[in-house]
Computed example of a mutant assay.
Amino acid sequence: MTLETVVVILLGGFCGGFVTGLAGFGLSLFALSWWLQVMPPVQAVPAALVMSVVSGLQGVYLVRTSVDWPRLLRFLLPALLGIPLGLMLLDVIDSRSLKLVIAGFLILYGGFFAFRRELPNLTRPTPVIDGGIGFVSGFLGAVAGLSGALPTMWSAMRRWGKSERRALLQPFNVAILGISAAILAVTGDIGRQSLITMALALPVTIIATQIGILVFKRVSDTAFQRLVIVLMFISGLGLMLRELMMA
């Protein structure tokens, strides 16, 4: 492993960890934008998945007292049903096309609201839609690794406080990604190079996550909502460019 590869792994771990600590999502998207420059997806993706769980657990601990369990379970339980369906259809579904569609939604949604004075403000309860988004997110997590995209867009439409918003997104993502990581471990898809990447990135990712959490504590609820929307736009652009460049 060259010095350049080590530096890129550290930069990816730092960027991904910082964004996850700040916003509660995004490690895979931001870390992979670096890691895929120096290693193939078969090595980078499992490493990013495991590091997402490690980084996300720090955020879960931060908002542990703010978790609304009935709300979280409305999303999470249907997602658990969507995962096996996604795994069954993994060889049938074109995951690249799915990623491009989701990237398009992130770009359109984030771009539309990022530059508007008024932010979205949905107030009425939507338990059926919540469950549907959870189910589709579990499916998307299994076939494309994008379990957090729809819940992030949906939660950004509500004027929840930053801790309230994060208390839904982070435990949801950690649960789905943790299950996915466990499946990879059982099937033997986490190879030696992925383990080396994790070992190198772990310390800097943990530190960067803590820095992001410190910034998170200082931003207002409105600033956090707008930050999430802007990061959705950036994540969508990054995802689309990555898929197009890998074509």
Rank of each mutant, 00 (worst) to 15 (best):
T2V: 09
L3A: 14
T5I: 15
V7N: 01
V8C: 13
V8G: 06
V8F: 14
I9W: 07
G17D: 01
G17S: 08
F18A: 06
V19Q: 01
F25E: 02
F25V: 01
S28P: 08
S28I: 06
F30Y: 06
S33F: 15
W34C: 05
W34M: 09
M39V: 14
M39D: 04
P41W: 00
P41L: 01
P41M: 02
V45W: 00
V45D: 03
A47I: 09
A48D: 07
A48F: 00
L49Y: 02
V50H: 00
V50Q: 00
V54F: 09
V54R: 03
S55E: 03
Q58L: 15
Q58R: 11
V60D: 02
L62M: 15
L62W: 12
R64D: 06
T65V: 15
S66R: 12
P70L: 04
R71G: 08
L73R: 06
F75E: 01
L77D: 10
P78E: 12
P78T: 07
L80M: 11
L80H: 10
I83V: 13
L85F: 14
L89G: 03
D91A: 11
V92R: 11
S97Y: 13
S97N: 14
K99Y: 09
K99N: 08
L100P: 05
V101G: 07
I102K: 08
A103V: 02
G104W: 07
G104E: 13
G110L: 05
G110D: 00
G111H: 04
F112K: 07
F113P: 01
F113C: 06
A114G: 10
R117V: 15
P120M: 07
I129E: 13
I129P: 09
I129R: 08
G131R: 04
G134R: 06
F135C: 10
F135T: 08
V136D: 11
G138F: 10
A142M: 04
G145A: 07
A149P: 08
P151L: 13
M157L: 12
R158C: 09
R158M: 09
W160K: 10
G161R: 05
S163D: 14
E164I: 12
R166I: 12
A167K: 02
F172E: 01
V174L: 05
A175F: 03
L177A: 15
I179L: 12
G188P: 01
G188S: 06
G188N: 03
I190M: 06
G191T: 04
L195F: 08
A201T: 05
V204G: 02
T205H: 04
I207T: 10
T209A: 10
Q210M: 14
I213M: 12
L214Y: 15
V215Q: 08
F216A: 11
K217C: 10
V219E: 06
D221L: 07
D221W: 03
D221N: 07
T222A: 15
A223M: 13
F224N: 03
F224Q: 05
R226D: 02
R226S: 06
L227Y: 11
V228Y: 04
I229H: 03
V230G: 05
L231F: 11
L231N: 00
M232I: 13
F233K: 02
F233G: 00
I234C: 09
S235E: 02
L239P: 00
L239A: 12
M240A: 15
L241E: 11
R242F: 12
E243D: 13
M245E: 14
